[in-house]
Design a protein around this nucleic acid. Structure first.
Lengths: 211, 211, 211, 211
DNA sequence: AATGAATGAGAGTTCATTCAT
DNA sequence: TATGAATGAACTCTCATTCAT
């Protein structure tokens, strides 16, 4: 903390709480960027700290490791997306409608995330190799995957191996989602339409397990 | 080297050559394991060396970096799989048949790889986090991906966005392939049947671009 | 940091600052010794670290490389000697007087450096091969060299090849300086008298370029 | 040794000795180049071996270390230059004549060395930073230095401190010699004339020790 | 005597994490 | 609670040297 900032803190003692959430947010923001650019494995705690502007030790007052920040980020995504998904699942729609809405919600979420994340970045900084997936996206994706898998397993339809089915559906959702993010403008509706059609028709073509 | 020995060298391998080959293999094997367990990013040259039992410097007599071992492993996969794929593509089959055969070949390859890689491991060692994909598999997968993408782009069918189509197809192949490897016994035929059905029917369900 | 402590920081050094300065000095001292004993090429960063007693990583908190410590040392010498030299040059003296004063200043500087450097060393350590020239001396020497060369080139006297002249003068200064340091007691006045006489008379004996 | 060379050796057994001197020469040549380009400290045994084309182990059949090759090279220079210097010293010339001839011989020797060393290099190879002094030159220089010092000490003239005098003389010889090598064409006569004049007149200007 | 792969010490450097301030 | 320097383990890579062939 510079002496100037230090003096300021001395004068406005009530700001403590603000600083705490501000620091937490700064770390989270920095981590999101770093993970997005470098990928989880390549990213280091130091990278995050550096972008934060905070002292090295401060990081450890909030999170104990890279894993923990990642988890916090993921939780955030899940926290924002969870309710949407839950309301979808509680409506008793047919499988078709559920898939349609879930995919739609997922694509909207990641498009949003992506936009915000890119937009928040100060212009002029190069950031050559944006890898592009934030922990939030990953977490939401995992949610969708679980929901799909569960739904597939639950509906004792005439379908084939539910494990494979879930794997195939989520694979489509993820890959098409990634491709979607690479294009300008980002067309969530088109991508969703594609993915849903491919999933639903694909599933119909599968040999019936019972047959 | 005495002249006698020198002449002999021309005629038979000699112990030097043997250990050279053995070391190269040891490094490659160790690398395959390490990459499979830790993943490319997490793995370090030292991890490979350690598992090898060789001296640190010895590694660098064979490969200059982690990248290079990885490439060697990938090249090996490509070298073994490339001919198969090329012969498939040269036969002028319909898209359906091509997909069927390519997926089949891919699944067989990774099943084989996986079996060998797992089997070669001395029993009793724990190896906590098996990530499971060797560079060979990754390379072969990339081959399949390119072939599929090219084939889709080439056939000016009534299909939708070729980029999305390719992405979806390879996603299915990869994910179902991974799931397949997790099961005992490994059922390549069943997995292939599933993936092919899902891909081909899925594609049929897509909105015609021209319509 | 508490706000009280924070305010305090602004007013007095604090222990942190102290150890920082101490470490910087320790590194610089160790580097000076190592360079003096081993020479720049032979010296390694690790040699410096070892003599310092600090942890390996600590070095890199202060300097990024061997080059950088060397530069810091040289800058220090230049910073201390530069003003002296500049004042000499600004006084419009005759060449003779300039040479006399420059050589005198150079000899005094290196004698001082040498004394301090040797004196600071704990008795009993062997230090087999003392090479003897610190980066400071080298930097100051370079300064003198430039000043001499420039002065010689500027004064369009009847002198011979200015490049050779400058080379010869600095050669004398350096070698006689080195010899001087090897003797006890160190007699800067005598050495300077010798060098100046040799230079000035030697130059007079040169064939006139114009004649 | 390639099998071809190996077979050749098998057929011409008498060539053993030739190979031995050839290898020795190859090592010496390579070392001269490497020392000249990289400098003694920076040069590594590996650098020499690499340029040699020989196997690593072969080097150690001839020399035990970098120091030893260096010494061999220096000995070679001394062996070639020694007789010249000795004949000079045996002729009972005056000090002036001795200096003149010694400097002349030294300059001729290093010019020759330099020429050969540069000329022997295959055109097209870049070799950016030629440092330029071979061990031979260094050794010959040391010879000259010793002769000068001894001569100065022996002639109990009216001269000042013989140690300083020798140091100053050899300093002039070395530096002017180096400068000479940097110019095209290399003018040994001119450089020698300069150095001799500077030395002899410079010495005359020194305060008499006896006075 | 020549070979060249193996060796392992040791160089430079980065990192996660601690802890006195 | 924030700070940021200190720490030392770990990493990549090079080197001189040995020794089985």
């Amino acid at each position: 903390m510079s002496n100037v900032a230090c003096l300021a803190t001395a004068l406005n003692p009530g700001k403590r709480e603000q600083t705490k959430v501000a620091n937490r947010l700064a770390i989270l923001d920095a981590a999101r960027e770093v993970f997005g650019e470098l990928g989880y494995e390549t990213a280091t705690v130091r990278d995050i700290i550096r972008r934060t502007g905070l002292a090295a030790g401060t990081f450890y007052n909030y999170y104990r490791s890279k894993e923990e920040v990642f988890a916090a980020l993921a939780d955030d995504g899940a926290a924002r997306f969870g309710p949407i998904l839950r309301s979808l699942r509680g409506q008793g729609h047919s499988f078709e409608v559920f898939v349609e809405q879930a995919i739609g919600a997922y694509f909207s979420f990641i498009a949003d995330e992506h936009r915000n994340w890119v937009a928040r970045r100060p212009a002029g900084e190069p950031h050559l190799h944006v890898q592009g997936e934030t922990p939030e996206m990953a977490a939401v994706f995992a949610d969708i995957r679980d929901a799909l898998a569960e739904d597939i397993a639950r509906r004792k339809g005439p379908f084939a191996d539910p494990d494979y089915m879930a794997a195939a559906c989520i694979a489509i959702a993820r890959e098409v989602g990634d491709k979607m993010l690479e294009r300008r403008p980002i067309d969530t509706a088109g991508a969703a339409q594609f993915a849903v059609a491919m999933i639903l028709t694909g599933l119909k073509g599968l040999p019936r397990a019972s047959a």
